[in-house]
Simulated scan of single mutants.
Amino acid sequence: MSIDTVGDKISLNTASYQRINHIFVFLEVFKQEGGIQSYVKDIFRAYSGLEKGYQADVLLLRDNPEYSNPFAGDSLKFHYFQNKSPQLGRIKMAGVLFKFLLQKRPQQVFCGHIKLAVLVQTLCQPLGISYTVLTYGKEFWEPLNEKERRALAGAKEIWTISRYSRDRACAVNGIDPQKVRMLPCAIDGDKFTPGSKQPELVEKYGLQDAKVLMTVARLWSGDIYKGVDVTIRALPKIIQAFPEVKYLVIGRGDDQPRLAQLAKDLGVSDRVIFAGFVPTEDLMAHYRLADAYIMPSQEGFGIVYLEAMACGVPVLSGDDDGSADPLQDGKLGWRVPHRNPEAVAAACLEILQGKDKRCDGEWLREQAIALFGIDALQKQLLSLVQSQ
């Protein structure tokens, strides 16, 4: 089967045109924002661009039609099952899924969460319909129960976002690595672009004449792996060389008082600005404030690194996680031991000096979009669905 590329669209040659039916099953996509939801929306965007022949029914357990959905159209038809009784909603979704399996005989069912994999296996296997499990990260890094492991074992393929996510899940759940394929996160290069620092934001946060380090992360006590505390501990050494440095932390959560106290204890409380929650639509303007994006974390992938790079901002990550993929094993950014303030400080000093190629914002943006733009995701998705 050959393909044509026209503009931003990828389509089947008319000579090999055929109708291909798929079913996607997800927990929720539009009810709330988050990494998984953003990833799924990018998959919808890419799937919609496949054009001729590809059509899918999308079953959403916890969403309803009132949520904004820009993806409904000829190629994607959505069905909602949000219910006051979660059990009843699940039963209704199972009934519709079973009906579609019998009537439409889809070429493939894509299960969007491990918590739905047992249901999908139960309905698909007796009918001889194969299924693929889409995974994001943490939800299958730890040992799963026996039924979930059997559901993964019965899947034709497992898609995940990074090599790290694959390796960790395979190690703890006995998954065959050959069954796992990569479908990485994507960055919208039209949404995240370089630009000057907005004067009103500079004034709001007191960043006049400052070198700005920035992190976007949840500040939850259960998420200290994000490394905000490590960056705060690195500040005293950084300030010795760059006394104008300030650290802008975007996000909210119950760990903020501890972090604020840490900054006070280290004598850098005047250098740390807690910006709180920033809506997604305002994030780009905030990335543009940064001279460096610093997050020595442990991520399944780390879409924030791509967002920063697309805005022309150099990045620092941890060295033992999924960030190896967006940072291309260090080609596109600095990777350091994630709980080591000294290593973070040393890397920050290199970034702020700006002599390394990885500080070239234009080059960084070009590389990030070429590897992880929506077009790249669309081509990878097409390759995966054609192999089913």
Rank of each mutant, 00 (worst) to 15 (best):
I238Q: 04
T14A: 09
L306F: 04
Y287S: 01
V6R: 14
Q103G: 06
F277W: 11
T160L: 09
K211E: 11
T280Q: 14
R45T: 12
T160C: 11
G302T: 05
P106A: 07
Y136V: 10
N13D: 10
M182G: 03
F140H: 12
D360R: 10
W220D: 10
A94C: 14
G112R: 04
K379F: 01
D57I: 03
T14I: 13
S68E: 15
P341R: 00
A292R: 00
A345M: 10
Q388T: 12
D375E: 13
G227P: 02
V245A: 11
L127H: 13
T122S: 08
F242R: 03
Y287F: 13
Q378L: 08
R149Y: 02
V315E: 03
L102G: 07
I374F: 04
G354T: 10
Q87H: 14
R62H: 12
D8N: 14
P70K: 07
C311A: 14
G154L: 01
V245F: 03
H286S: 05
G95S: 14
L183I: 04
A234P: 03
M93C: 05
V278W: 05
E244R: 11
T160Q: 10
D74K: 15
M295F: 02
Q55P: 02
E139Y: 06
N145D: 15
F26I: 08
M284D: 10
P106K: 12
S2H: 11
K355W: 05
Y54D: 14
D8F: 07
L97N: 04
L371W: 08
C111W: 05
R90C: 13
D356A: 15
Y54S: 02
P314E: 06
D223C: 08
R149K: 13
L381K: 02
T14N: 07
A217V: 09
K9C: 02
E148Y: 04
I158H: 08
N83H: 14
S317I: 04
S162Q: 04
P296F: 01
K237M: 03
L364I: 08
V172C: 05
V25L: 09
Q388G: 06
V29C: 04
V133R: 02
E148R: 15
S38V: 05
H338K: 04
A347F: 03
I273A: 04
A234S: 11
A241H: 14
G361I: 12
T280F: 12
V133G: 06
C185H: 08
G318P: 00
W363P: 02
V109D: 00
M309F: 01
K226H: 00
V278E: 01
V315R: 00
D63W: 03
S383E: 11
L123D: 09
R271L: 10
R19D: 14
R339K: 15
M284Q: 15
D209V: 01
R335M: 11
F242I: 00
A275S: 09
Q121W: 13
Y131A: 01
L327Q: 03
G251V: 01
G154M: 03
G253C: 06
K138M: 05
P243H: 07
L144D: 05
A370K: 15
K92E: 15
A285N: 12
R90P: 02
L116Y: 09
R339F: 06
I43P: 00
K379C: 10
P86S: 10
K138H: 05
